[in-house]
Amino acid sequence: MKSEQILKFLVEIVKEASALVTDKFEVSQKGDAFDLITNLDVEIEEFLIKKINAQYPDFRIVSEEKNSNHSVTENCFIIDPIDGTINFTNNLPLWGIQIACVINSEAAVIYLPKMNELYYADKSGAYLNGIKIATNVVPIKNTLYSIDGTNNLPIMEKMRPYSSGRRNLGAVCVSMAFVSCGRLHGALFRSDKPWDYLPGLCIAKMAGATICDEPGFHGAAMNEEFLNILKEANK
């Protein structure tokens, strides 16, 4: 299956799924007090799964709400219907719909509806609203990075001598998208939930970022030097 065919399909269904978003939604807790879910998470995911099953019935689907226990294999789609749910429920624009087919085809889409920014990538490169994008390399002392996850204070302290600043954006898809287009110079995520980080890693890689996908550390950076600094701080 050609990656450009899958990418075109992903762009279409993500745009269609975004039409389901409304200002009226119900919020509940999945686990702890910081793990929220809305009815729109479920509705968007069900819509995307239905579309994929109709077009690619032999592909496995790994998704946050319905198929979180599935492992990532060849011919596999990974879905996060709303990444940054807490931002979404508080009317912050930093959230997105993301989906990828990352093993064989290496195609991914991140859509940030409130910012009207559509990021997508395949082996031809990475794009933002149809314009090819690339990472932005700056001196280490001028770098700006993002960190998502829990217990981040030790990492932030270790990074103090290297970077001009840090951000916690509350949505991994936004962090990875911003690395891909050069607004950030690095991003790291410490959880191992593939729907959170795999679409973003795919787009960042195609934008020229150096990436790392290891248990407990999933990151993208402008170059290998800065990625190694982030990895060392994560130890």
Rank of each mutant, 00 (worst) to 15 (best):
N104R: 13
P81E: 11
N91F: 08
N67H: 12
Y111V: 06
N91E: 14
P81K: 09
L48I: 11
F47L: 04
F59L: 11
D80E: 10
R60L: 15
E46L: 14
V72K: 02
D41P: 01
K51H: 06
E46G: 09
N69G: 06
T38D: 09
P113F: 10
V72G: 00
R60A: 15
P93Q: 05
I37Q: 14
C76D: 03
G84D: 09
D80P: 10
E74R: 10
K50Y: 12
I52C: 04
C101M: 10
A100Y: 00
D83Q: 05
I110M: 08
A100L: 07
A108N: 02
I86K: 15
I52N: 04
V102G: 07
N90G: 11
E106D: 12
I86V: 15
I78W: 01
M115F: 15
K50R: 14
M115Y: 14
K50C: 12
N53C: 09
V42E: 15
N116C: 12
L40D: 03
A107D: 01
N53F: 12
M115H: 15
I78M: 10
G96E: 02
G84A: 14
Q55V: 10
N91P: 00
F77K: 00
G96M: 03
T85R: 09
A108W: 00
N90L: 05
P93Y: 05
E45A: 01
I61A: 03
K51Y: 12
Q55W: 08
Y56N: 03
I82R: 03
V102K: 02
L36M: 10
F77N: 00
D80N: 11
P113D: 08
F47R: 08
E106G: 06
Q55C: 11
G84C: 12
T38P: 04
N87L: 12
E64W: 02
W95H: 07
L92M: 13
N67D: 11
N67G: 09
I103V: 14
N39I: 01
Q98M: 15
V62Y: 01
V62T: 05
I99E: 04
N39C: 03
A108D: 01
I103T: 08
F47I: 11
